[in-house]
Nucleic acid binder design. Structure first.
Length: 587
DNA sequence: GCCGTTTTCGGCCCGACTGTTTTCAGTCG
């Protein structure tokens, strides 16, 4: 049975209630209850409609009796009487005022009640005509800030790809080290958790002269605007629209500050509640006994976790998705690392749309310490890439064999990134697949098919027994293209059953699967590959991004195909091919 | 509104910065 709403609809509904209650002046704990539940549902790995039908809504942390009833009503009817009554108390545009940084619920309410402002254009007009400076609690600066933020809002930049944030952060920290006395420096926030996109940069520094560091930070070359500036922290706007926040702490607080500013917010809140139950309090300066004020931890991050009775939790897991419970039991997974990766299984050459000869790509892979690399050039349907036909595959087979004789013990696997055609059939004949070592498949065309059609297409494609891996299964391109409409749960289930691996693609704008879906795949029993989809030698260095996504999916070494040493991988691929031949009646 | 090896009632994460105000509310992360 289909319910009337999806998880994201429920999340939006609860957040709106929270916002409206806050504007109304309702007590904070009630407001936070709605927001906490919204967060939990946003991170949910199951369909909330199914949870409801199974009578399991109360299992969601933060959902009690009252919220269960409201969510049920919303799922059944697509509406919620309680929310509609709340909405009726305020004009529909009022909540858009909260999008302006510096405007919270109190000021939004004052603006509405005194000046009848209920939209951003009305806000701008009031600010321009100098009406806001006379309101209680506001003044000329608030008015000027509103105008400034409205301008910024008009050209608001969305979230940025992780790779861009990492390079910006590394540059900033290097510049800061050169221009001020910095004892330790690191980045925190979503950058350190390696989320696939980041909203801003969180930088952390230890210094005995914090004022000088903050000052130097605001004067770095790429800073275009200083948003706030104090002795312990400063926020700036960088060229290109990225915001960077710097925090300066004393050395004895380094670990606590690193923990605090790495987040996530939900993880931190959970951790603090845990501390409180011991009679301790946790802040960015350390872990303290509430009664005596004694410092229990703070200099070292791992020690902080251990003092709380937890295994140290890798930053990639800190999303309050069960990692704290697992760490309490000592049951955190041993996450896959870059060192575990034995080869790259998705690499292009100048035979199709890569920029370098096959031999160059192989040498670059070998230089990174890999035992193997799969060359996976495109196939004939992808005309723009001059994709290979069956005859060219045979030519490539010959070249690969020659190179392997020279490069041993390094091994090039002859592979393919074969197009899945719009009806789910594959681009090359089985005879061509039979001469290959590794077959991976991708959707590159008709990407806007309806959900049911795309799902059937992928299911049909992975049913070919020669197929080892489904590449970039969601097809999204950050900031450019949404994911395919597809029932990925069904595709993952089928892939798990057939032993088909799902790729974690490390291209910065792909990051596909991301951590969320990687974890889903592992839970379903599917195996992952982590590959770079390199089109030039330097792109092989994207591998850490893919490893990060897999780690965010709780992947261990054993969940990832290309952690296998060469001989074991060859055994695995050989067995698959034998089974494929058997299925075709060739044995 | 949620929740419980301190509690079924009485708690609920914590501090910096800004601006307006003369001791602190509002906002943010």
């Amino acid at each position: 049975m289909e319910t009337a709403a999806r998880n994201s609809d429920v999340v939006r509904m609860l957040e709106e209630i929270g916002d409206l209650l806050e504007v109304k002046g309702e007590q904070n704990f009630r407001v936070n209850a709605y927001r906490k539940a919204a967060r939990a549902i946003a991170d949910l790995r199951e369909d909330i409609g199914e949870l409801y039908l199974a009578g399991r809504l109360r299992e969601i942390p933060g959902v009690g009796e009252a919220l269960e009833q409201k969510i049920a009503e919303f799922l059944e009817t697509g509406r919620l009487g309680y929310l509609e009554r709340l909405q009726a108390e305020f004009p529909p545009g009022l909540l858009t005022l909260l999008e302006v940084p510096g405007l919270g619920p109190r000021r939004a309410r004052v603006l509405y009640e005194t000046l009848k402002i209920e939209s951003l254009p009305a806000l701008e007009q009031a600010a321009r005509s100098g009406q806001i400076r006379d309101l209680p609690g506001m003044g000329e600066k608030v008015e000027a800030n509103i105008l400034r933020e409205l301008e910024r809002l008009k050209q608001r930049s969305t979230r940025h790809p992780l790779e861009f944030g990492l390079s910006q952060a590394r540059d900033l920290l290097a510049q800061l080290r050169r221009s001020a006395p910095v004892a330790q420096a690191a980045f925190a926030g979503s950058l350190r958790r390696m989320r696939d996109t980041i909203g801003d940069l969180d930088l952390l520094v230890v210094s005995s002269e914090p004022e000088r560091v903050a000052e130097a930070f605001t004067r770095l070359p790429r800073v275009v605007d200083v948003l706030s500036h104090g002795p312990q922290r400063a926020s700036v706007l960088l060229r290109g629209g990225l915001q960077a926040d710097l925090r300066i702490v004393p050395a004895e607080s380094w670990g606590a500050a690193l923990q605090y500013f790495t987040g996530s917010k939900a993880h931190n809140v959970h951790l603090r509640e845990l501390a409180l139950r011991h009679g301790w309090t946790l802040n960015e300066y350390g872990l303290f006994d509430v009664k005596t004020g004694e410092r229990l931890a703070g200099e070292d991050e791992d020690e902080l976790y251990r003092r709380l009775g937890l295994q140290p939790i890798p930053p990639e897991l800190r999303e309050d998705q069960g990692e704290i419970e697992a760490a309490l039991r000592g049951a955190l997974p041993a996450l896959v690392t870059l060192d575990d990766i034995r080869g790259d299984l998705h690499v292009h050459s100048d035979w199709t749309d890569g920029s370098a000869p096959l031999a160059t790509m192989a040498a670059a892979a070998a230089a990174r310490g890999y035992q193997y690399m799969a060359i996976t050039d495109h196939t004939k349907s992808l005309g723009v890439a001059r994709g290979l036909d069956e005859a060219r595959v045979l030519e490539q087979r010959a070249l690969v064999d020659r190179l392997n004789a020279e490069l041993a013990p390094f091994r090039i696997l002859l592979g393919t990134e074969m197009d899945i055609k719009r009806d789910g059939t594959l681009d090359l004949a089985n005879e061509a697949l039979d001469v290959m070592d590794y077959v991976s498949i991708s959707v590159h065309s008709a990407m806007n098919q309806p959900r049911e059609q795309m799902t059937e297409r992928m299911l049909r494609a992975i049913s070919n027994p020669y197929v080892t891996t489904l590449n970039h299964p969601r097809g999204r391109l950050l900031r450019r293209r949404e994911a395919y409409e597809v029932d990925l749960e069904r595709v993952i289930e089928a892939a798990a059953q057939r032993g088909v691996a799902l790729e974690v693609n490390a291209q910065p704008e792909r990051m596909d699967l991301d951590g969320f879906w990687a974890r889903r795949a592992i839970q379903a029993g599917a195996r992952l590959t982590i590959s770079t989809d390199s089109h030039a030698p330097g792109q092989l260095d994207f591998m850490p991004l893919g490893v990060a996504s897999a780690r965010r999916g709780w992947a261990t070494r054993r969940d990832v195909l290309n952690t296998l040493p060469l001989d074991e991988l060859l055994d695995f691929l050989g067995a698959r091919k034998a089974a494929a031949r058997h299925a075709r009646g060739l044995t």
